[in-house]
Design a protein around this nucleic acid. Sequence first.
DNA 1: GGCTGGTAAATTGTTTACAGTTTTCACAGT
DNA 2: ACTGTGAAAACTGTAAACAATTTACCAGCC
Lengths: 247, 247
Amino acid sequence: MEDNLTQPLDDLTVVKTVSLTNALEKQIERLIVEGELAPGERLNEIQLASRFGTSRGPLREATRSLEAKGFVEVIRNRGVFVRQLSVAEALEVYDVRAALFGLAGRLLAQKMNDELLAKLNRQLDAMEAAAAKSDFDTYYPLNLEFHRTIVESAGNKTLFAEYLRFVKKMHLFRAKSLVQGGGLAVSNREHREMVDALASGDVERAHASCWRHVERAKARLLAALEAAQIQPAEGVSPDAAKSASPV
Amino acid sequence: MEDNLTQPLDDLTVVKTVSLTNALEKQIERLIVEGELAPGERLNEIQLASRFGTSRGPLREATRSLEAKGFVEVIRNRGVFVRQLSVAEALEVYDVRAALFGLAGRLLAQKMNDELLAKLNRQLDAMEAAAAKSDFDTYYPLNLEFHRTIVESAGNKTLFAEYLRFVKKMHLFRAKSLVQGGGLAVSNREHREMVDALASGDVERAHASCWRHVERAKARLLAALEAAQIQPAEGVSPDAAKSASPV
DNA sequence: GGCTGGTAAATTGTTTACAGTTTTCACAGT
DNA sequence: ACTGTGAAAACTGTAAACAATTTACCAGCC
């Protein structure tokens, strides 16, 4: 009897617990991160509201929240646009992420234990296996999860929340495809070094190792940009939506 | 970067340029930061809307934005509450701020110039003068401006925006008065050392100096908490609003 | 052809109305 | 006194209506 009740609770009860606004926000964020809504694209209120079967009120609340988080830009009387990261801004985000990830390394080095180390090593092995097969579709989520584990395990929830936000923000970068520039094997060598540093108990070394890891990713992006002859200088006009096609 | 706090400018002209939602958000944020709305307090939609002469729609949009920025907490069917930082969360914020401020130091050390150094030294002198007279009301805004100058001059706008947000967040800490625990002279000695480090061109030293400065502030808060016999463990229930009176 | 002006459609900004939930408070029963 | 019950009030959640602005389009003119 009770089992029947647990299952079909989906749509309506979710709305009971979480507000419609929150559900909408999550959905729209997903559309943005997964690329269905491209950077620069405009969000039509009526269209989106009817798509999710709600009115414009909750939708507007959701977009205001997304604006505060930096995922969209609202221009009065013109509409809300998916935020577009210029090269310069993307590089800024890298530096901030490096600082946050460095802090994570510092904190984690102080509380490293066998269980966590084992988990990180398992993740390293899985990534290495995917890298060996050049299986990028497997590697990518594992890589995300690995970094996530490090920051989450650092035990600072404020830090974790900010870190996640900045990682998501990279999806707003127009030349998104270049972000992966580094290649699989290169990255995993750095990962092993990072885990070594975290396990060493040397706080400064862990800090530097994690920081450097992000800075190297930034350097790889810069190299890829140069190879693709993209200048790190453009603006962020939400109007210029058409030229978004990366590489 | 001048704030519009100097003049409450005409309601109507503002609405033409900035949206009503944005104006509301700024006003409510001001009420929170200035303490008129205390941590834990509930925001009545009808009351606030009528106070600012608008309807509930724009007000709700403003509160959603403030929620995303971490200044209020929205509980479904219960209302909006001014966010309340527990001791544990305040300490988390210090660590994140240390990381961000450290990054600012690193970036600034690379682009330090005579003009900027002169400006920082002027600010140091002004603070020292205020400290000598134990003129806290003068010292406090100067101190804020000094740190703001450093982060803003670092040239990373993303970093600057995040830093400002976290500084504001400290106003949500219940035992807010303890945040100033360090005293005036102590702090300024650190400030001079920091400017020295920034001017030295030694990136690592600047980084460490700025980082340490925030960590020392955290340590002073911890000491003050211990002296006041407050345990760093409480939750964040928005209901327990009454016990907010600091020290 | 290209520009200007003006009108209609589309879209956003704001208010109002209604539905559902939580809180309050009086009151009966113990 | 204390506790539980049950309206009534207060408040939030959502939808719909109305107002103001922007955009699209087309005719007329240089």
